[in-house]
Simulated assay, not measured.
Amino acid sequence: MSDAPLQLILEDTDGTQLETTCTRFAVMWQGREVWIQQVGNGQLMIGVDVDENDTEYANLLLRPLATNLVSLQLEMEPADLEGDDEHVHGPDCNHDH
Rank of each mutant, 00 (worst) to 15 (best):
P5D: 08
P5A: 13
P5H: 04
L6K: 01
Q7F: 03
L8M: 04
I9M: 09
I9L: 08
L10H: 05
E11S: 10
E11M: 11
T13R: 10
T13Q: 07
T13D: 12
D14E: 04
D14S: 04
G15K: 00
G15C: 00
T16N: 08
T16V: 02
L18N: 13
E19W: 11
T20F: 05
C22V: 03
T23V: 10
T23P: 04
T23Q: 13
T23I: 06
T23L: 15
R24D: 12
R24A: 09
R24I: 01
F25K: 06
F25Y: 15
V27C: 14
V27Y: 06
M28I: 13
W29A: 02
R32D: 01
E33T: 01
E33V: 02
E33F: 14
V34K: 01
W35A: 02
I36D: 00
I36F: 13
I36M: 11
Q37N: 03
Q37F: 03
Q38V: 00
V39G: 02
V39Y: 00
V39K: 02
G40W: 01
G40Y: 02
G40H: 01
N41M: 11
G42D: 00
G42M: 01
Q43R: 12
Q43F: 04
M45P: 00
M45A: 08
I46G: 04
I46A: 06
I46E: 09
I46N: 03
G47P: 03
V48M: 11
V48R: 09
V48S: 13
D49R: 15
D49F: 09
D51M: 14
D51T: 07
D51A: 15
E52Y: 15
E52T: 03
E52Q: 09
E52V: 06
E52W: 14
D54I: 06
D54Q: 03
T55Q: 15
E56K: 15
A58I: 00
L60Y: 06
L61K: 12
L61Y: 11
L61M: 12
R63L: 09
L65D: 04
T67C: 11
T67G: 14
T67H: 15
N68E: 13
N68C: 10
N68G: 07
N68H: 15
L69T: 07
V70Q: 11
V70N: 13
V70C: 14
V70G: 10
V70H: 08
S71Y: 00
L72V: 09
Q73V: 05
E75R: 13
P78D: 15
P78L: 14
A79L: 11
A79E: 14
A79W: 01
D80W: 09
L81S: 09
E82L: 15
G83H: 05
G83V: 04
D84A: 07
D85E: 15
D85A: 14
D85V: 08
D85C: 07
E86Q: 07
E86P: 01
H89W: 05
H89Y: 07
H89T: 01
H89D: 05
H89Q: 03
G90A: 05
P91Q: 07
P91N: 04
D92S: 07
D92T: 08
D92W: 12
C93V: 00
H95A: 13
H95V: 07
D96I: 06
D96C: 10
D96F: 10
D96G: 09
